[in-house]
Nucleic acid binder design. Structure first.
Lengths: 150, 150
DNA sequence: CTAATATCAGGACAACTGATATAT
DNA sequence: CATATATCAGTTTTCCTGATATTA
């Protein structure tokens, strides 16, 4: 809280933070390069991930979750439905709503794409770090998790 | 290279990779939440970062770097110029070209925005990790850098 | 004359706002 | 009747392709 760079930590903490920030950017980029998603816009991919994580939902609920207008979400859902990634079914209890859910095909594609990214990282860790270094990395991950808690 | 999950590493390596992948995603998200960029589209922000990193360049060179058409880059540059973020000057040696460079104001904004993200991370490290844990983290960062080399 | 640079014109797409039909 | 859901219509933005003027 007294170095000249305006931070609240020591100079060594600042250097550590810069190293970590740049490293996170690079790792994220490398992960993204593996196992490409389909050619849908990011917002549509986000909808698929949301459906996978939270289960079936209505158009309006999805729009709220993704910070989009319901009209835009309708169009996005229509595109995803045309591509066979989601399916709509009328809600038996509320005739206004349509329940959107992932198709099994899409669920499998998401799993495969995730596995591709995961496998690259897994292979790289196995190839470049010794068993002891892997233990050290596991310990470091516990430290890093503390940084994002709460 | 013989576990049932189809990976090439051991089960423990796979678990490590999954932990790390999720952690990277969360850290990246937290960093992004700090110090928001202006309301320019991502491709225009990318142009600013490119100019900051590599120095002044022509419209065509920028278009090649960012994987855009020169016509689209022209429009992007016009928007950035209207916002006072870049400035164009004719090339004295080649009358066809216009050299695009960052304004001092923009360079300062980029620095400030980066510092905001950096400071959050720096403060969090200082607040949540003991000096010994910070040393451990520095060692772990050296390990992680090996994963992205080459 | 050929190649490179930048721009003008028009189109496609994904987000937006406003208005409307249907169901609770 | 008031509220919520979904959609129809039109606009804005950002990318694209095709064609053109200028300079090397």
């Amino acid at each position: 809280m007294n170095n000249s760079l305006g931070g609240t930590g020591t100079a060594r903490t600042s250097a550590l933070a810069e190293d970590l920030r740049l490293l996170i950017g690079t790792l994220k980029r490398r992960l993204r390069e593996q196992g490409q998603r389909g050619d849908h816009p990011p917002s549509q991919v986000a909808v698929l991930l949301r459906l996978e994580k939270d289960g079936p939902a209505t158009v309006s609920a999805l729009a709220r979750s993704e910070g989009m207008r319901p009209q835009s979400m309708s169009a996005a859902i229509a595109a995803l439905e045309a591509a066979g990634h989601v399916r709509g079914a009328p809600d038996p209890d509320d005739g206004r709503q349509t329940i959107i859910s992932l198709t099994d095909t899409c669920r499998e594609r998401l799993r495969t794409s995730r596995a591709a990214r995961q496998d690259w990282l897994s292979r790289t860790i196995a190839a470049r770090l010794s068993p002891q270094e892997q233990k050290d990395l596991a310990a470091a991950i516990r430290l890093l998790k503390r940084l994002v808690e709460d």
